[in-house]
Design a protein around this nucleic acid. Structure first.
Length: 885
DNA sequence: GTCTTCACG
DNA sequence: ACGTACGTGAAGACC
């Protein structure tokens, strides 16, 4: 079955140009229109899977339309040179894709596309037209779908006659009547002055066509009647101008549209010229020179079982880098496939398959090497490797460098940190894609040993070559300390905590679950009664239909796909209908049940009764950790019902205690330090209640005049300050007007002048350097800090304000963790560090260590880093995590 | 796979 | 005029 895709090249390029921030490649060529066009093209090819593709361009300056009306498209702004310079390159790119393009003198892209859709209708071929121009809607038919871009080029609305009727109440052929009446300023089509979309639609719904409207002016009234009568000719001519000409002599050029996919090396060359690195990675295109740099491997691959134990031992004595391959996202459950070790001189790579590692006859030297803390190892994601290995009883020691961790510090915002994506960043030869070696999804297979060995060897070699390059960059970025003294040691501390796990009492959860289940059923039936029908309350779509169509509640907010029903909306709807409160409760319970009761129960290991999270150290752009499988950083606490989940988190030894310590206001303390604001510093030096103090200063009242509402507002302002304040955000949060919010902020900055100075300064610094840093020199690049798009730029500015604060707080608790681990070890304590929740550390403590830990933990946390204000950590403890409050 | 919602700091 | 608070992960619905 044929399927055609016809793209309006000029229209899409224009749209992309104005939607995207200015991008240039290093040669200074603007590339934003090309980039936008390309992403749109890839998306549409993927979604539509066309057999034939054409990109049509407008040709030359004079089209047949000018013959009748010389002002056609007059008055249009001249195409900016930043865009026009992109057209020749765009055409080259389309050629690299192997996609046909037409440009016929005297005709516009519309006409070419119009002619082809006519042909498609005649031949009964399914066709999609891609454009940003609503005029195209006149071509819609049962076979022809018009895809119009919305909001730049990223979102696309598809129209067939049915959708057109729903949205405008018009048939496709009436689009030209619409234009005839209302005109089009961008094409300088006059239409009837004073008639806009609303009026034009009204007239067409009544009369159907321009001609009929003109024939019935008598039924129009007043000013409108005069205008229509005076501009009859304009309307007729406008209609004619808007009509797409569908008889372009294309003869039989359709066969040229056949699309057979692209040649990866040709497209790769083109993307390289444009410096579309993300697209090269996304499409897994070869790295350079037409085909990938295929460097002849200049090392021998040695299988462990092919050499004697002594030979293996001596090879490992000169080991340099190591790569571990495991299958599975969750390192606690991942299956090791094998590992590869390069020698220092790079001329040999030893590969050990999993079976060999498990074979005592072969494994002895390799196990000894892995466990030897004096044998240096450079690798990729050794935190994960350490954890996976620990489950088969092999500790990994002697880590001296990790290219994943380094890549993260060098650019934490990079979207992919896989080894394969990292390698080209440093100009090293590409790796074979994992998919090509293993297949994906159901087709995943571990290949034969020789093929596997080659692949693992290439990865180990890539690591060996990456290390010195990254070390140089770390040095240049002043991140040596951050790397060697913080992140790298932390990786092993984390693996220890993860392996240790925390005990979760299943029956506590089950009891809670039974209680919640009862309540859920109750709410469910009450909701159905109020709704007068049964439906899936968990479906935002169905819920929206009930609330806004059936019950006719006011629509507060819309999402891309329909009505919004989030908690914020529901809270506003509470006064209108009793059902809303019930839904809010239902939502709360349903979340608790599915995510926390059922979700957590699934994660408990049957044998030990523990859950083992996995902390990811290279995800968050600010330097924070993230937690997965399960996420133990978002266990409920704010509401009592949810907080009870914490009762299930208990010590793993009888008689022990859960001890939790959290930093008090760490982010605001960090802000006080880095901004140097005297008032804020003083507040913390005096150990005041910071929100009350803020209220006093912002409202200009004494402490005893601060009521709970003032404190609440001050607290919101403090949060806003940390997030990178905007009046809009604060007004939203406090449900006040933007003006009021803006006054709060102004008053805050009047008092905390140093904070204002910091905010102004950090944004300037970001603009200057392109990045911001934390106290420990952790770096975050802000690609959009100079964007012309207000939204993108504002976002980058808020990020510039927030990242040094959030990131420094992350630095501090990470430091505390490394220190704490040392302390437990050096003092020979049995207490164990189990969890980190951004500003909190959770331990399990034997009875005889409780008194010591109660002072040691806050001491270590408080002295992790010396700031101009004290760091304070509060301790609490109990029989479970709930009691430790 | 994407979207929406919601849990945490 | 624009239209967002910063950072995450998981579940369920729906395509």
């Amino acid at each position: 079955m044929e399927k055609w895709m016809l793209i309006d090249g000029n229209s899409i390029a224009y749209r992309a140009f104005f939607a995207l921030p200015p991008l240039t490649n290093s040669a200074g060529l603007h590339t934003n229109a090309i980039y936008g066009f390309t992403t749109m093209l890839l998306k549409m090819i993927e979604e539509e899977k066309p057999t034939h593709i054409l990109v049509a361009f407008d040709a030359g300056k004079v089209t047949f339309r000018h013959e009748g009306y010389t002002e056609y498209k007059g008055g249009r702004e001249k195409t900016p040179s930043e865009l026009s310079e992109q057209f020749p390159v765009l055409k080259e790119l389309i050629q690299s894709f192997g996609i046909a393009q037409f440009e016929l003198s005297g005709y516009e892209a519309d006409d070419i596309i119009g002619t082809l859709t006519k042909l498609a209708d005649e031949k009964d071929v399914e066709t999609i037209v891609v454009s940003g121009d609503k005029d195209m809607l006149q071509l819609a038919s049962e076979r022809v779908t018009i895809a119009l871009t919305r909001k730049g080029v990223s979102e696309i609305d598809r129209y067939q006659p049915k959708e057109l009727m729903e949205k405008y109440g018009l048939k496709p052929e009436q689009i030209i009547d619409l234009k005839g009446l209302m005109g089009d300023t961008s094409d300088n089509i006059p239409g009837i002055p004073g008639v806009g979309e609303k009026t034009a639609l009204k007239m067409l719904h009544e009369f159907g066509t321009v001609e009929e409207v003109l024939a019935n002016t008598s039924s129009l009234k007043g000013k409108m009647k005069e205008k229509v009568e005076a501009h009859q000719e304009d309307a007729r001519m406008s209609k004619k101008l808007a009509t797409i000409f569908r008889e372009v002599p294309l003869e039989d050029k359709v066969s040229e549209l056949l699309y057979n996919g692209y040649d990866a090396s040709v497209l790769g060359d083109m993307f390289r010229k444009l410096e579309f690195k993300s697209l090269i990675e996304r499409l897994e295109l070869p790295e350079a020179g037409g085909t990938a740099i295929v460097e002849e491997a200049n090392y021998d691959v040695v299988l462990a079982s092919d050499v004697t134990g002594d030979e293996l031992t001596s090879l490992l004595a000169q080991a340099d880098s190591v790569y571990f391959e495991a299958v599975g996202e969750n390192p606690h459950q991942a299956k090791l496939i094998g590992l590869a070790v390069t020698t220092v001189d790079g001329d040999k790579v030893v590969v050990v398959t999993y079976d060999e590692l498990m074979d005592p006859a072969v494994a002895e030297p390799i196990r000894r090497w892995l466990e030897d803390s004096e044998a240096p190892k450079r690798g990729y994601d050794l935190h994960k490797a350490d954890l996976t290995l620990s489950w088969i009883g092999i500790p990994l020691r002697g880590i001296t460098f990790d290219v994943l961790l380094a890549a993260y510090l060098l650019d934490p915002t990079e979207s992919s940190q896989t080894l394969a994506s990292l390698v080209p960043r440093y100009g090293l030869p590409a790796l074979a894609p994992d998919e090509a070696v293993y297949g994906k999804g159901a087709k995943f297979r571990v290949p034969a040993a020789d093929i596997l060995a080659k692949h693992l060897a290439a990865k180990a070699e890539a690591i060996r070559r990456l290390v010195p390059l990254q070390q140089k960059h770390l040095e240049e970025g002043g991140m040596n300390q951050l790397y060697y003294e913080l992140e790298q040691p932390l990786a092993i501390v984390l693996a220890g905590m993860e392996k240790q796990g925390i005990k979760v009492n299943a029956s506590t959860l089950e009891d809670l679950g039974a209680e919640i289940a009862q309540n859920i059923t109750r709410y469910e039936s009450e909701i159905f009664t109020h709704a007068g029908m049964e439906f899936n309350i968990n479906s935002p779509k169905q819920l929206g239909d009930v609330l806004f169509d059936k019950l006719d509640l006011p629509v507060i907010k819309k999402t891309k796909t329909g009505y919004s029903t989030d908690a914020e909306v529901l809270e506003k709807l509470e006064p209108y209908h009793e059902i809303v409160r019930l839904i809010l409760h239902y939502r709360q319970l349903s979340k608790l049940q599915s995510t926390y009761v059922e979700g957590l129960l699934k994660e408990i290991r049957r044998d030990t009764g523990k859950v083992h999270t996995y902390y990811r150290q290279t995800i968050a752009a600010t330097g924070r950790l993230s937690s997965q499988f399960p996420n133990l950083q978002n266990i409920p606490i704010r509401l009592e019902e949810g907080r009870r989940i914490r009762k299930a988190f208990v010590p793993s030894e009888p008689g022990w205690t859960i001890l939790a310590a959290d930093y008090s206001q760490i982010e605001l303390r960090v802000l006080a330090h880095i901004s140097g604001d005297e008032r804020l510093k003083e507040a913390f030096i005096e150990d005041m209640d910071i929100h009350t103090k803020t209220a006093m200063d912002v409202f200009g009242v004494p402490a005893d005049a601060v009521d709970s509402n003032m404190r609440r507002q001050a607290k919101a302002v403090n949060f806003g300050i940390v997030y990178g304040i905007s009046d809009f955000g604060l007004s939203n949060n406090l449900n006040i007007s933007r003006k009021e919010a803006s006054r709060f902020i102004e008053q805050y900055f009047e008092v905390f002048k140093g904070v204002r100075g910091y905010m102004d300064n950090i944004v300037l610094q970001a603009r200057n350097d392109g990045y911001v840093t934390t106290l420990l020199e952790r770096r975050r690049y802000l690609a959009d800090i100079k964007a012309s798009n207000f939204n993108l730029r504002s976002f980058a500015e808020r990020t510039a304000m927030n990242t040094p604060i959030q990131g420094t707080a992350a630095d501090i608790i990470k430091l505390a963790m490394v220190r704490m681990d040392e302390q437990l070890r050096e003092r020979g304590l049995h207490s164990r560090m189990l969890l980190q929740v951004h500003d909190e550390l959770v331990f399990e403590v034997p009875p005889d260590e409780l008194e010591l830990m109660k002072t040691l933990v806050p001491e270590v946390m408080g002295s992790a880093l010396t700031l101009d204000v004290p760091l304070k950590a509060d301790v609490s403890y109990g029989d479970n995590w709930y009691e430790a409050k």
